[in-house]
Design a protein around this nucleic acid. Sequence first.
DNA 1: GTTCTAGAAC
DNA 2: GTTCTAGAAC
Length: 764
Amino acid sequence: MDMMDVDETSAPREGKPVLVILVGAPGSGKSTFGEDVMRSSTRHWVRVCQDTIGNGKAGTKAQCLSSATSALKDGKSVFIDRCNLDREQRSEFIKLGGGLQIDIHAVVLDLPAKLCISRSVKRTGHEGNLQGGRAAAVVNRMLQHKELPKLSEGFNRITFCQNENDVKNAINTYSSLGPLDNLPHGCFGQKNTDSKIQVGIMKFLKRAEVPLAAAPTTSGTEEPTSQTPRNNLYCKDKEALSSISDTDNLETKEVERQEVGSAGSHANQVCPDDIPTLAFPSISTSDFQFNLEKAADIIVEQVAEFLNKFRNARLVLVDLSHKSKILSLVKARIAEKNMDTQKFFTHVGDITHLYSRGGLRCNAIANAANWRLKPGGGGVNAAIFNAAGPELESATKDKVKSLSPGNAAVVPLPSSSPLFTREGVTHVIHVLGPNMNPQRPNYLNNDYNKGCKILQDAYTSLFDGFASILRNHPRIPEGKSEKLERKSLELPVQSDCSSRKYFTGTDQKSKRSDDHGSEKSKKCKGTQDDLGLPFTDSKGEKVDSEHRRIERSRSKAWGSWAQALHQIAMHPEKHKGDLLEISDDVVVLNDIYPKAQKHVLVLARTGGLDCLADVQKKHLQLLNMMHDVGLKWVEKFLSENASLVFRLGYHSAPSMRQLHLHVISQDFESTQLKNKKHWNSFNTAFFRDSVDVMDEVSSDGKATLKDDDKLLSMELRCHRCRSAHPNIPRLKSHISSCQSPFPAYLLQNGRLVHAPGEPRNSVQ
DNA sequence: GTTCTAGAAC
DNA sequence: GTTCTAGAAC
């Protein structure tokens, strides 16, 4: 037990009566706390409960005061069992201590609001008679006006409990408090909240359910080892909690801006868990057998340097075991140096399951790679390559071939990678550290002069890599990838031959039609088929795919309302007035319920082509043409409003029959965008970028579908800064002003299309 | 795909 | 009481 302000060591061992003021919302467990302690304590306790003090019914505060006074005068210890959430309520009980030789304690049952509410709602025979649905409203209102107690109010000791484990520990502490014992004075279980700023931060953190675990051990957490599990507990269900109270969130947003000083484009984030976060394993200390003490020094020093430069970013050192030596060493140094534990903390868990198992959102994770950047081996490297799927391997191969010690390489993770979809990881940064293991390459023979230098370099490169992601300049090794990325962002506003210019010099060209006039395309259709499909025209395969297609069509029954596009595609002349363009192969029309300022559909006219699942290699030419027609309209729209940004793609499982390409501006400014499904259908993997679809159909003969319903009910995240929002109205109000650059993933491969030089905050 | 609406959430 | 979601019907 490491405690602070232990000023009782020299005091005579003579127990004083204790007045314990329980502080907590209904459902936080105040009564249970008192009862549990009284059951096993050797002290004489009296529980003064306002809910029952009037002959079993609710009484007044005055009754409580007098009842407490007389008990204390008898030398008994007292629990004040009422909410006591604001300072004023507490002050009168604190005054009771005035003439008496007693200790005044607060025990704060600061449990998640959700938990209190569910308990309040569930309980039936509770003395306070706060039952049913009204409980939620009451609990919320109370928590909104909550003021956490401070020593300066007159308490000798305050114990904060933020989870049930903390509560259990506190019950033990008070249960074992014999008649002759005193408890040390001070604040326990939470940072001292002496300044307004800290109160603000603590309130903010509590609401957003950030790991309070991050609080330094020096603040007197009685059991330092309980830190990390709390991390996990508190990060889960943040959406549920943050949605509990509007005013809370508004208030806390302010708090963050003014007091935490969050800077830059991410200042408008609701949840601190959305701060760009890099999780990294300790480099070189496992298989490479680097000295742990030295490594810990270097980690802390390099982290400090990074955090000096980047205020709005988090670093998390991850290891698998609670017993991890390197974690304890680093933890000790964090405490020693009084580092900001919101920005740098340790986490016990699997680096490939930080979100799904630990509730910790990390945009980037570091991989302790080998020099060949190959999967396998063991440890973190094997785990990350395994978890990320083959996508990481090929993405890595595209970026860089090998790595020398002291270097790092940033690899954007394809959105199809499970690490991306499940964990929200957008980048893997491979790092290679110094090797002190004679069995491994580049053995340094215990030369720690060199070793430390290389390890420093490794962390510097790692954090530089992370910084480059923050700036949305993925540091791509020289060569085609970077050119591709840059090129594909530029779309000349001139109206002719856009796609040709657009993709010139990139490897996209070969996959795409060089023209978008329907006449010409039709002419070369046969040629392309002959050239492009040398293998798939064997009889067997044709039958098979035909069969597949029919099977699919049969299984998907289209409702009557889903036929509109199909009717238009089959008989466009009947709908002439509603259409923007008609050709032999496609029809272009405004989406009847546009989900953004500009939202058009490029509709295929091919019969039997109902959705992306029906697309085969023979449709590649059509896909190319649809894309080009889409780009042509994008160009037109950009010439009218150069600030727009467009994305072209297909819904994995469309609601309307007949293959259609969405061309949609990324403002999502539309009253027709009304629900989660609307948002997620354009902003999760459910939306398949046209460029990716073409690539996949070209290489695999079919498009990958992400038609899991889970995608459509995912939490609402801003498509720019990825911050989470509790509901559609609030998401919309956020995106109306979010200026963050788009995630790196979207900036690649021409997924986003905008006018040259726009927007300014994007990749140059 | 939308509209309607009950009831959950605030 | 009002806002918001989500499921059913179309």
